[in-house]
């Protein structure tokens, strides 16, 4: 790219409003499109709760689904961005490192044992526990300063291990066909039948995003080396702890409400970095908005094509990842 600095800054500034505009447009489309055809007038009546039938469809089906899609996208994309800066590795992401897999294993245990039916909090908490365990394992397997190969190999090993845990629960714990089906559907990643209880499960995500927002600048320094960052006045230990906690919790909650939705944390930060450069003060808000936009778009696409959102993100993300590997020096 042969842009003058002024032109590239102008373009970088234009990206955030453009993403917000796209997100707003997708929100409107998501309200308009659904299994039950409604006219714009009916939708308006539903939004204003003047038509009971339309109001149910809008407020109990479409709005929660759209909110969950946005929360999941924002969480996964921001987690990917954080992990890439943390590990100084642009291939790091919650799914490749096994953090999503940890959340899946935790949640599958919660469903398989039946604990999840005890309280609304059990499923997300088990997902968080699973993700925390996976994050801890990645940290131990890939000590700092290790190259990208070691980190990704640690992720592969961890994903295989967590897959075994999930498979064990699936074959040995489950008593009812129904619960098994629930697990499998859930593992494929989907946003069907998401209701307000899922919105509440995902409610800490905006809070985590708000905590992440001001960390963009120190993330810049961290992404060029921990020792360097510390010598420049960043409290690296505190920053790393905070970043990892936020990324893990966001990934876990996204996994708890939507199952396994892959590649978001890899694709979105990469595309945004290509568009606006590596400065995290810009990337953090953009990753949140861009992730929400991406998952919402994938869900709409999947809805129209009859595919679950996890399948759509994998169809988009898989080829993108291969392209990235080819491109990497």
């Amino acid at each position: 790219m042969n842009l003058t600095p002024a032109a590239s800054t102008r373009r970088a500034r234009a990206v955030f409003p453009a993403v917000l505009l796209l997100l707003a447009a997708l929100i409107i489309v998501a309200l308009l499109v659904g299994d039950v055809p409604l006219s714009p007038a009916e939708i308006w009546a539903g939004l204003c709760r003047q038509d009971a039938h339309a109001a149910t469809i809008i407020w109990d089906l479409r709005v929660p689904r759209l909110l969950v899609a946005m929360a999941v996208g924002a969480a996964l994309s921001a987690s990917g961005l954080v992990m890439q800066a943390y590990f100084r590795n642009s291939l790091a992401s919650p799914d490749l490192l096994g953090v999503s897999g940890g959340g899946t294993a935790g949640a599958v245990i919660a469903i398989g044992t039946g604990w999840a039916s005890a309280s609304l909090l059990v499923l997300p908490m088990m997902a968080v526990l699973g993700s925390l365990a996976a994050t801890g394992a990645v940290l131990i397997l890939a000590r700092r300063g290790t190259g990208p190969e070691r980190l990704l190999l640690a992720g592969i090993a961890l994903n295989a291990l967590l897959g075994a845990v999930t498979g064990y629960v699936l074959t040995n714990f489950t008593v009812s066909y129904e619960r098994n089906a629930q697990i499998i559907f859930w593992m494929l990643g989907g946003l069907e039948d998401r209701g307000w209880k899922h919105v509440w499960m995902a409610a800490p995500i905006p809070l985590a995003a708000a905590l992440l927002w001001p960390l963009g600048r120190p993330m810049d320094l961290l992404s060029l080396g921990a020792d360097e960052a510390q010598s420049l006045g960043v409290d690296v230990r505190a920053l790393r702890r905070r970043l990892l906690a936020l990324a893990t919790v966001m990934t876990a909650l996204a996994t708890a409400v939507a199952g396994t939705v892959g590649f978001v944390g890899l694709v979105v930060p990469h595309v945004l970095r290509l568009l606006v450069g590596p400065e995290h003060r810009r990337l953090v808000p953009l990753a949140l908005a861009g992730g929400a936009t991406f998952v919402l778009a994938c869900d709409l696409l999947g809805h129209l094509a009859g595919l679950r959102v996890g399948i759509v993100t994998a169809l988009v993300g898989g080829p993108f990842f291969l392209w990235l590997l080819r491109r990497a020096p």
Binding site: R88, D220, L224, G277, P278, E279
Partner: peptide, 9 residues
């Protein structure tokens, strides 16, 4: 350097 910050930044 893993990320393409400009020299100035």
């Amino acid at each position: 350097f893993e990320f393409g910050f400009t020299v100035r930044s």
